[in-house]
């Protein structure tokens, strides 16, 4: 009987948006709103694992809070700005990123290694995960939808210049494009080229020029005064 009037189609994001807008005392909803099927399945797993003492619900909240609020591209931007400002830091970062990043408090919770690849006039770097969606979480947070899409995962390797063009990036013809395929063990961060005329800016001002896409390699760092990406 649940397929009758009470069941909502939760499969479309639009339906969720309607839910947000719905007043709480809506008389058409005498019972609590039924979450979408996958949400109930996740709840079921959570309950079973909690009952068996295999998970700690508080730890789940902590993980969600971390990825939702505390880590994101601002972390990577800080690292890039520091590398632009401090040649010794940059050399150490490119040579062996893990200890340098750990000093800043950024380390892979899944035990992965971080590798930083530097863009130069001769070589532009771009990161993909053809397997699934491996990504430098501690530095960039959760990947955007397009990074996880079949289209990007397939095309980044096959036709990187066309993908870059779709992102509005055109490179000089003599700049080589190198694509790095992430794995469960190794994650890459692109060190974009520092925009001209920004020498001497503070690390904070420099960090504001570093976009998420510039650290994946599907964008370039912004010039000062350029509109936010």
């Amino acid at each position: 009987m649940i397929d009758g009037i009470m069941k909502h189609d939760w499969t479309e994001p639009a339906a969720a948006a309607q839910h947000e807008a719905m007043p709480h005392d809506d008389p058409n909803h005498p019972h609590a709103l039924l979450p979408p099927d996958p949400a109930l399945r996740v709840k079921a797993l959570e309950t079973i694992l909690t009952q068996k003492g295999l998970i700690d619900p508080a730890a789940l909240d902590e993980i969600i809070d971390t990825y939702q609020n505390r880590i994101g591209p601002q972390n990577g931007a800080r690292v890039v700005a520091k590398a632009w400002s401090d040649p010794e830091f940059k050399a150490a970062l490119l040579a062996d990123a893990d200890p340098v990043l750990a000093d800043l408090g950024y380390y892979g919770r899944q035990g992965e290694h971080m590798v930083v690849v530097e863009n130069t006039p001769a070589q532009h770097n771009m990161v993909v995960c053809t397997l699934c969606s491996c990504y430098p979480w501690p530095l960039l947070g959760i990947p955007p939808g397009w990074y996880k899409s079949d289209a990007y995962r397939a095309r980044a390797v096959r036709e990187p210049r066309k993908v870059l063009a779709d992102f509005g990036v055109s490179l000089p013809e003599d700049t080589a494009v190198r694509v790095w395929d992430s794995t469960a063990e190794v994650r890459y961060l692109v060190l974009p080229m520092q925009p001209e005329g920004t020498e001497g800016l503070s690390e904070e001002d420099l960090a504001a020029l570093v976009t998420r896409d510039s650290m994946i390699g599907t964008g370039l760092a912004k010039a000062p005064g350029e509109a936010p990406a």
């Binding site: 979450p35 996740v42 998970i55 993980i63 990825y67 939702q68 899944q110």
Partner: peptide, 28 residues
């Protein structure tokens, strides 16, 4: 842009990360 489009996306992500960190399986 929201990090997770739906609450259950965040829940299933966290559940998996937690099980990995608790040693139930390796990330590989």
């Amino acid at each position: 842009e929201p990090v997770f489009a739906e609450p259950w996306h965040a829940q299933v992500f966290a559940l998996t990360v937690h099980l990995n960190e608790a040693g139930r399986f390796s990330w590989a």
